[in-house]
């Protein structure tokens, strides 16, 4: 090769650039993990440190002994698991129905969904609808039902189904299989990357949900984890309560600030563990095609 040294310089440059970005992505995590196991008084004295001077697990002990966080955990797990399952069912059914351009009214139905991505009635009418007509306030379903269908995910899945060879399900239908059967036993098993990717999108949405709690939920038993985080950021008093209650006043300083960080870390947990398993599907699952498909 005539320009190999030039090529090598580019390779080094590319590695450098992408690695620096990756490090920047990682840094806040490491900082917060390190700070969350820092002794409270050391944190207040020395500030947030990647390498703290004094360690302490008091914050984690505190959040595990009080009921607030474990309860919010259960709420969030319920929302995420049930929500994602329902979302995937509704989405894949509609996506299959619209795939392959088999329906005469298919394009109209697609437009019907697409329009909701472009135009919305706004937060106020959703609020009034939810509270005054659907009476979903103070119900765990208020986290799930309004978010159940994402048209964007629907089109992602439809585009994926479009690529499945039609002959596969035409022949199954000739043998007498109904549409639901074809969807369940042929289309879905062939679409694991799409299901994993889109399922993860939905799961992330549910897992991160806090605004419904702020608008509709007064009952602390139904607070989601993220809403607790939101409150803790604004208001150290709440972290203070958890810290005082959880540390049973043995510690010299109630670990209020480290409790905030520890809460963040236990909240991040499950998603972080999930994503390495799903990530190999991403490149295959992300078929960003046009709506017209």
């Amino acid at each position: 090769m005539k320009n190999s040294s030039y090529d090598r310089a580019m390779t080094v440059l590319f590695y450098l650039f992408t690695a620096i970005f990756a490090l920047a992505c990682l840094y806040p995590f490491l900082l917060v993990i390190a700070s969350s196991v820092t002794d409270e008084s050391a944190l207040l004295r020395d500030g947030y440190r990647l390498f703290p001077n004094a360690f302490s697990g008091a914050a984690y002990k505190a959040i595990l002994t009080t009921a607030t966080i474990p309860k919010a955990y259960l709420v969030t797990i319920f929302i995420t698991v049930v929500g994602t399952a329902l979302s995937l069912i509704v989405t894949s059914m509609a996506a299959y129905s619209l795939s392959g351009g088999r329906l005469y009214y298919g394009p109209h139905i697609a437009m019907f969904f697409y329009f909701t991505m472009l135009f919305s009635g706004g937060m106020v009418s959703s609020y009034i609808l939810t509270t005054k007509y659907l009476h979903l306030q103070n119900s765990i379903w208020v986290y799930i039902l309004p978010a159940l269908l994402s048209p964007w995910n629907l089109f992602l899945m439809r585009n994926f189904f479009n690529d499945i060879p039609k002959e596969l399900f035409e022949s199954a239908k000739l043998e007498g299989a109904g549409e639901t059967r074809v969807l369940r036993s042929i289309v879905l098993p062939l679409s694991l990357p799409a299901l994993a990717t889109i399922g993860l999108f939905y799961a992330l949405g549910y897992w991160s949900s806090w605004a419904p709690a702020m608008l509709y939920i007064d009952n602390p038993d139904l607070y989601s984890l993220q809403y607790i985080i939101m409150q803790i950021i604004r208001n150290v008093d709440m972290a203070q309560n958890i810290a005082v209650e959880g540390s049973q006043s043995t510690a010299a300083v109630a670990p209020a600030y480290t409790v905030r960080l520890a809460t963040a870390m236990v909240t991040v947990g499950p998603i972080i563990f999930l994503y390495p398993f799903l990530q190999r599907y991403f490149v295959g699952g992300l078929k960003v095609g046009a709506i017209k498909g």
């Binding site: 897992w207 806090w210 960080l261 994503y275």
Partner: peptide
């Protein structure tokens, strides 16, 4: 994969 509230804490 991190929610914005967590980023807020970061």
């Amino acid at each position: 994969f991190i929610s914005w509230p967590i980023v807020g804490l970061f």
